[in-house]
């Protein structure tokens, strides 16, 4: 059985010398939600960028359903769906046109309109929104559309980059429920976030990343008991002390 998401000793050093990801090693199994916590510039997003082949790794590998993203990018991408932090789509197109276009690009091939409407309804976009241009959508609606586009790809692995930031409470809750559903369907979910409380609610495992290093992974049984906030701030403080009180330089990573 292949593992949906496998990161093997990943190192990413940018051209300007900044070490963004330092020997990252983890895997996400099917039916599992993995939340990656970390401050701005901890290397979470870079991990995703490398995982999607947008930028090559400096060392180590990323495998998606067994395919190495650098060696077999197209096969790997056929098994992954991605939702960005702030979903932006083609503003001139309606929601339906957007999702239809992306459905044509996905490995599953073209889908019936009825099926697409169904998916849109599932993520909570009302029928009136399907025919509207995306330019006028609120952030929550765009986020829903983004997850709908991820759903139609029917991928084993879903990568989400801080999906809940800027959503209202209702939107956030709906989103979490949707992720639970996806997990039940057997998908692996990898999500980066700053939101400790939501992570605690939903995650099967939680990783903490500080300055490119995965410093701690909390297993399912630990999550319930541990004081996540205390652990998280502890690591950040420790890091700050090691650096001699200097604030982490985050600008280059953003």
């Amino acid at each position: 059985m292949t593992v949906p998401y496998e990161i093997d000793h990943l190192v990413k050093r940018y051209d300007n010398g900044v070490l963004a990801v330092d020997d990252l090693h983890l895997s996400v199994q099917k039916q599992e939600i993995f939340c990656m916590l970390g401050a701005n510039g901890a290397g979470k997003t870079t991990t995703l960028m490398v995982s999607l082949g947008f930028t090559p790794p400096s060392g180590g590998t990323v495998r998606i359903s067994g395919y190495d993203i650098t060696r077999e990018p197209l096969e790997a991408k056929a098994h992954v769906a991605y939702v960005s932090e702030n979903v932006q789509l083609y503003g001139n197109f309606t929601a339906m046109q957007n999702i239809r276009f992306f459905s044509e690009l996905s490995s599953r091939g073209k889908m019936e309109d009825a099926a697409l409407h169904e998916v849109l309804a599932r993520v909570g976009l009302g029928a009136d929104a399907h025919k509207r241009r995306v330019r006028g959508f609120s952030k929550g609606m765009r986020q829903r559309l983004g997850i709908a586009i991820a759903i139609i790809r029917d991928a084993d692995l879903i990568l989400l980059d801080e999906p809940t930031s800027g959503l209202d409470p209702k939107g956030g809750l709906d989103f979490m429920n949707l992720l639970q559903e996806l997990r039940r369907e057997g998908r692996a979910v990898f999500m980066t976030t700053h939101d400790i409380f939501r992570a605690r609610e939903i995650a099967d495992r939680i990783g903490i990343m500080v300055r490119g290093k995965l410093v701690r992974v909390l297993e399912t049984d630990e999550i319930e008991h541990a004081d996540l906030a205390a652990i998280y701030t502890h690591y950040i403080d420790q890091m700050a002390i090691q650096e001699g009180g200097a604030r982490p330089d985050t600008t280059a990573l953003q």
Binding site: L52, G53, F54, P73, L74, E75, K77, A78, V80, A81, Y82, S84, N86, V87, Q88, L89, Y90, F102, L105, S106, S107, G146, I149, R153, L159
Partner: peptide
């Protein structure tokens, strides 16, 4: 700039 390029490239499109 918009970010649609990332979404596009997350698909298996050369």
């Amino acid at each position: 700039e918009q970010g649609t390029l990332k979404l596009l490239l997350s698909f298996p499109v050369p």
